[in-house]
Design a protein around this nucleic acid. Sequence first.
DNA 1: CACTCTAGGTGTACGGCGTACACTTGTCAA
DNA 2: TTGACAAGTGTACGCCGTACACCTAGAGTG
Lengths: 220, 220
Amino acid sequence: MARSSRPALNPDRVLSAAVALADERGIESLTMRRLAHELGVVPMALYKHVAHREALLDGMIEIVFGEIEPPAIGGDWKAALRRRAVSTREALTRHPWAVGLMEGRTEHGPANLRLHDAVLGCLRAAGFSVEMAVHAYSVQDAYIYGFALQQRDMSPESAADFADVAQRQMVEYQAVLADYPHLVEVVGGYVAESGYDYAAEFLFGLDLILDGLDRLRLDG
Amino acid sequence: MARSSRPALNPDRVLSAAVALADERGIESLTMRRLAHELGVVPMALYKHVAHREALLDGMIEIVFGEIEPPAIGGDWKAALRRRAVSTREALTRHPWAVGLMEGRTEHGPANLRLHDAVLGCLRAAGFSVEMAVHAYSVQDAYIYGFALQQRDMSPESAADFADVAQRQMVEYQAVLADYPHLVEVVGGYVAESGYDYAAEFLFGLDLILDGLDRLRLDG
DNA sequence: CACTCTAGGTGTACGGCGTACACTTGTCAA
DNA sequence: TTGACAAGTGTACGCCGTACACCTAGAGTG
């Protein structure tokens, strides 16, 4: 029954088509109907391969987790965790739709569990107490996902819309700009000139956190 | 035309009803139709007071920003920013639906702008260079919103579902648990016993970051 | 070989969503 | 008294996820 010309569907093909569609068109464009259309198939055909939309998202998230490089356990913990953080930000930059979906899943796939385990193992091997490992994990992940969240929300559309938005708000801007002098100085001045390098900005906060953790490593 | 018994609709009443509904039933339950029903009105009536659903969300976000205590400029900067961070987390705990919506808006209300301006002003008054103020802002907000994101996603539903999920996954757990020894030690051991205090956990990372910034204050 | 079983693709239909558009109706200014 | 206008209504459209019944090509079995 496979339409002879088409390569035949399976869960993996559905999943990667879904990831590709979300990457290219945004998560709000990922509907079962559009995904089916993309695969040259009728919407209901998808349900032979994924239970429902939510399960589709679970699988997509697991793909993203699979792209994150787990830290080595037992070596230079700071370098390992730094690489893992950078790797996570890169994955979330490739797949911005994943931010805000990854943390909340009730289904934890093996890639997810493997990564969590490796980070905790890395921290324990570095000499962090169990209690401190929890703290360290918490602060790192909050920062990483929070940064990715900010980047997603400020990043491309806002940059594209910038001229439009700026123009539309210019009239009221002129009126109220005096109320926000520091915003003017920092955003209107510095950022407008020097720009905003996400990768560099990310490393600033990351190193601040890792250095802070290093100092506390043997206290907990 | 106001249905004589009802207090008459206006944008503020619509907005606070929307916030209340999202708080109580979750953002996915906030549909124009349900909100209208809640207000004893037909769905289309809402459109006399808000342009569309997206504008409704803009207004709701502005309410949340209004609940965040802006830092005082010129006093003890660390204490002021600490309070602001705590105040932000509290607002996002009251309104979990706001996480992930606040950063991305293209419409910036006065409460939003005022808060941003105050934080930047506080940093500048503390002696941070413009460049360092950007870094400092970035790392703080990434952490704050990231923490709120994690809290939202782990927090109440997952806690409620915990028994269910644990039970359902127990059978495969037994099989694969050996693959994740550190997860077992930290989550199965420490966390299961000592629990997880969000407020305390938040302060750990927050103070780590603020102390780190203090050290860098005059370098940039 | 004939036969059944079944995995995978189809078509139809339902209830819910946001909202465009045309309408009624209560209020008040002139 | 009138007539304009703001606020609420009713209907309808095109999306969405997905339940359910159906078809059909090919693999497995006697």
